[in-house]
C-alpha cells in the first residue's frame, strides 16, 4: 500500500513538473467508512462499468448505458437509497479510476487476480466467472497449440494476452477496444480473437458470427470481482457490497439477468446459486 502511495506521489511530482503548476494531492481516505459517508452526503454513487461490452455494459442508441452490470449497478444504488452515476471505464484504466476515487465502486467485468487484490479491494463472493478462449473461423484452430507463432487479436489491458504470448507463443496484437480488435479479426488480420469466454459465447449465440466457432476449451476460468477502494474493503462499504453479491447469487438475480439479456447459461453461476442457498428449514413452513 505504502509503495503505491509513494509512487502516485512521484507521478504527481512528475506531472506538476511537466505542467509547471502545482497540482493537488488526491484525497486518500484515512478514516474508515469515509467513502460510504461521502457517497451518502453526495446522494450519488459513482459506479464504474464497461461501455463496449455487449450485453454486460454497453452504450445503447439513446446514448445511455445498458446491460447486466448496469442492472447490478442500479441494484446497488437502490439498496443504498442514492442516485446512480455510471462512469464508463476501460479495462486498461479501471483500477486507476478506483484508486484515484473517480469511481466509488467497480462492477467492470474484472477478473479477480492476486496482483489486482493488492491494488483494489475486490470483495467476495464474485458475481460472474469466465475464462480465456479463442474465436476462430471454423476449422482453422483445433487446440491452443495451434496459435504458436501466429498473429492473434486481443484487447489492451487484458491479462490473457500475456498468457497467450508466454505460454502458447502467440503474437498478440492488442487493440484499444473490442470493436477495433474484432474488426481486425473479422477482416482476417489475425488467426483468432483472444478474449473472454462469456463475451465470445455471447457473440456466437447472437448469430452475427456465422462460420466462426470457439474451438478450444476455456482455460483459466476465473471469477469476476466487484471492487471498492483498497482501504474500504473491510469497512461497511466493502461488507455491504459483499452482501449485495451474496444476495444476487442467493436470490437467483444473476440467473434472471442471464435470461433477460440472452446470455448462454453459465454452469458457474448455477453452481453458486446452489451453494449460496441458506438453509431456512429450521424456520418451518
Amino acid at each position: 500500500m505504502f509503495n503505491i502511495f509513494k509512487k502516485s506521489a512521484g507521478a504527481l511530482v512528475c506531472a506538476a513538473l511537466l505542467s509547471g503548476v502545482a497540482s493537488s494531492v488526491p484525497q486518500i481516505a484515512s478514516a474508515a467508512n469515509e467513502r460510504l459517508q461521502a457517497v451518502l452526503e453526495r446522494g450519488v454513487v459513482r459506479i464504474g462499468v464497461q461501455s463496449r461490452f455487449v450485453p454486460w455494459a454497453y452504450r445503447a442508441k439513446d446514448g445511455s448505458l445498458k446491460g447486466i452490470e448496469v442492472d447490478l449497478a442500479h441494484d446497488v444504488a437502490k439498496a443504498m437509497g442514492v442516485k446512480l452515476e455510471l462512469v464508463p471505464i476501460r479495462s486498461s484504466n479501471r483500477m486507476q479510476f478506483l484508486q484515484q476515487g473517480k469511481v466509488d465502486l467497480l462492477i467492470g467485468a474484472m477478473s479477480d487476480r492476486p496482483d489486482r487484490r493488492k491494488i483494489v479491494g475486490i470483495v467476495e463472493p464474485s458475481y460472474w466467472a469466465s475464462g480465456m478462449t479463442l474465436m476462430a473461423k471454423k476449422g482453422a484452430v483445433s487446440s491452443w497449440d495451434d496459435i504458436r507463432g501466429k498473429p492473434i487479436c486481443g484487447k489492451q489491458g487484458v491479462f490473457y494476452n500475456k498468457i497467450a504470448e508466454s505460454q502458447f507463443g502467440a503474437k498478440v496484437m492488442a487493440f484499444t477496444g473490442n470493436s477495433e480488435a474484432k474488426e481486425a479479426f473479422r477482416s482476417g488480420k489475425c488467426l483468432a480473437w483472444l478474449y473472454d469466454s462469456s463475451s465470445i459465447g455471447m457473440d456466437l449465440a447472437m448469430g452475427e458470427w456465422k462460420g466462426y466457432e470457439a474451438p478450444v476449451p476455456t482455460i483459466r476460468e476465473n471469477p469476476w470481482g466487484a471492487a471498492v477502494p483498497m482501504e474500504e474493503r473491510d469497512t461497511l462499504f466493502g461488507r455491504f457490497l459483499s452482501g449485495m453479491v451474496y444476495h444476487w447469487h442467493e436470490s437467483g438475480r444473476l440467473i434472471e439477468l442471464e435470461k433477460k439479456w440472452g446470455v448462454p447459461p453459465s454452469p458457474w453461476i448455477a453452481g453458486m446459486h446452489k451453494t449460496h442457498k441458506y438453509n431456512r428449514a429450521y424456520l418451518g413452513k
Binding site: 509512487k7 507521478a11 512528475c14 491494488i119 489492451q156 494476452n161 492488442a174
Partner: peptide, 13 residues
Amino acid sequence: LNQVWSDNVNVPE
C-alpha cells in the same frame, strides 16, 4: 509500455 504497465501495474514509472 502500455502493455507493461497494464501487466505490472507500474503506471508512473
